[in-house]
């Protein structure tokens, strides 16, 4: 786990990690959240809506932003304050998601940083983007 201090972070500091989305994650998220919408649980239903297969919950893939700030940037000292996410493309089971965050702004008197982040799949398609504010 990283442990950047506020002073160690600069505009431009960047961290990246990868994670593969599994069917087990989908089932666990379904059970945890209670979101039983068939778009996420029934491949035939998802196909009838124009998707390739079951669509991974947007909130599941966006949970990787929690990992980004809590483990990588800044890591241990992170207090997540705000996050705004745009869901751009569907994610499917088996996709390998690469999450990248870059510090774009620092506010010294409250030790807050703003991070622009995005998640892309194994073909380089951005599946979602986020703006995240964290305190340290």
């Amino acid at each position: 786990m990283n442990s950047y201090s506020y002073e160690e972070l600069s505009v431009g500091t960047t961290e990246t990690f990868e994670v593969e989305v599994t069917d087990e994650m989908l089932r666990a998220f379904c059970e945890m959240s209670g979101d039983v919408n068939p778009l996420h649980t029934d491949a035939d239903f998802a196909k009838s809506r124009g998707f390739d297969s079951k669509v991974v919950y947007g909130m599941l893939t966006s949970s990787f932003y929690s990992t980004l700030v809590g483990v990588y940037l800044p890591g241990e000292r992170c207090i997540l304050q705000e996050i705004s996410i745009k869901f751009r493309k569907p994610v499917y089971v088996g996709d390998v998601i690469r999450v990248t965050g870059r510090v774009i702004e620092k506010t010294d008197f409250v030790k807050r940083v703003v991070i622009k982040a995005f998640a892309e799949n194994q073909t380089g398609v951005k599946v979602n983007t986020a703006t995240i504010s964290v305190g340290l």
Binding site: Q81, E82, T107, D108, F109, V110, R112, G135
Partner: peptide, 17 residues
Amino acid sequence: INLLVAMEKKFLIKFSV
């Protein structure tokens, strides 16, 4: 915090703690 950060940006000033 959001208010003060917005004010810093709007008025091009820097606050201290």
